[in-house]
Amino acid sequence: MKHLLSISDLDRAEIEDLLTLAAEFSSVLERDIPKVPTLRGRTIATVFFEASTRTRLSFERAAKALSADVMSFAPGTSSVTKGESLKDTVLTLEATGADLFVVRHESVGAAARVAGWVNGPVINGGDGAHQHPTQALLDALTLRQRFGKLDGLKVGIVGDIANSRVARSNIDAFTKLGAQVELIAPSPLLPVDLSAFPVTVSGSLEDSLPHLDVVYLLRVQIERGSGPILPSLAEYGLRFGMNRQRLQMLPADAVVMHPGPINRGVEITADVADDPRSLVLDQVQNGVSTRMAVIFRLLGAS
């Protein structure tokens, strides 16, 4: 593995290898001194052209737990406001000493583009509505911890699938690991052509709930670049939001997930978010160990 740009670059064995390694790093993070010296002297650049706190912090925590140094780049405080391009930015970071790049950008294919310009490995930290592969891996790890394996699990992904990189990477990762995925959304929030997706589709959350093991709620926003995609958040919440009543329609051992940040009261009510069946905080925790595993695989071998 030279880069991690898309789940489509990985087969089942490679995904499982990363999950196993991530599980080992999880135990490192539970030690008194949650740190290993593996990547001492290496430098990881987080290049986030799109606002993000959670993902950037998670990558930086993962890098530091491997004893790597971190260079953090955000356009608000940088030369991008002076018109410096993505290409010049990453070439400058590489010349400054970055060994690995974590790239988040609003454009589809940005991380792959960067991989063509720099010598070091690149991790896609989210490119437009395309891919967010470490999110898919940490979600798979979370499900593996809870259920032992993903084979045969029925996962419902709810929300703005069309504009979601989380949905695209998770569909690929979950199905490669043997789960069945159902997309649950009003039709304007579905990709126009689903022929390349191994999924079923439902227009009703309540119809789907009784046969799901996992309800995976996506963050929804009224605006998406080119204009409004929802009549209102309130109407969306009434039809597709998870609340106490709908939680009871799930099988007893089913779980609720969300990649964050949560719009409390829209995708999910506060009581469901804080319910023991919500894995939201497990996801956040697993984010660090998963990213440690990915960084280690890309840099550790050399």
């Binding site: 589809v108 504009n163 695209r168 126009v192 052509d193 997706f197 080119s226």
Partner: peptide, 19 residues
């Protein structure tokens, strides 16, 4: 065509590019 980057179809759906 607003915000569109490529033909709307199976490939744009896969890539997450607006069609």
């Amino acid at each position: 065509s607003l915000g569109g980057q490529m033909h709307e179809g199976a490939i744009s759906s896969l890539l997450g590019l607006r069609g």
